[in-house]
Design a protein around this nucleic acid. Structure first.
Length: 153
DNA sequence: GCCAACGTTGGC
DNA sequence: GCCAACGTTGGC
């Protein structure tokens, strides 16, 4: 099982919004960056996603999701009305794919960037490629986060 | 709201 | 296929 970080702006889509959906699941669509897309396509059912709030007062890991189905074609790329519309993508050769994720839990104590950095994640893609919206964690990095969560709860 | 970082586009 | 210009992300 691999662990990932999924960034989302809480104003656009927060962990609370996910938790309030009837089935608590959503397609992680709208990603338009190839490195992030490759991560989305590498996700397997059962993988863990850390839900990260970005572009907000306290950017932090705020909870967990589980990957419940592997990446499928992101339909928003064909939708003219969508802000994720991609004129260069075709049904024959779609560019963008998205997995389905399910809400697992929301943390009482989110893990801020400061905490993550101090705990030893300073070399993670979260800090080295700070604009990347889908991040792959190494098993070492995942263990550090698990340990932090144990201490916090 | 500023601005650095950096991915993407497009002219040559 | 190089690289400057441009646009966007996201922390501060």
């Amino acid at each position: 099982m691999k662990s990932w970080i999924l960034k989302s702006e809480p104003d656009a889509f927060s962990i609370d919004m996910l938790a309030e959906l009837p089935d608590q699941t959503t397609l992680w669509d709208g990603v338009r960056n190839y490195m992030a897309r490759n991560h989305l396509m590498a996700m397997k059912v059962g993988d863990r996603g850390y839900f990260y709030h970005s572009s907000c007062k306290v950017p932090a890991i705020v909870g967990e999701v589980r990957i419940v189905s592997e990446a499928e074609v992101d339909e928003t790329q064909f939708n003219l009305a969508s802000k994720y519309y991609d004129a260069k993508s075709t049904h024959a050769a779609p560019r963008w794919f998205c997995p389905r994720v399910k809400f697992l839990k929301k943390y009482e104590h989110p893990l801020s960037r400061e905490v993550l950095k101090e705990a030893g994640l300073e070399n993670s893609q979260l800090f080295t490629s700070f604009r990347l919206s889908v991040i792959a964690l190494t098993s070492t990095e995942a263990k550090i986060i698990e340990k932090l969560l144990k201490v916090k709860s």
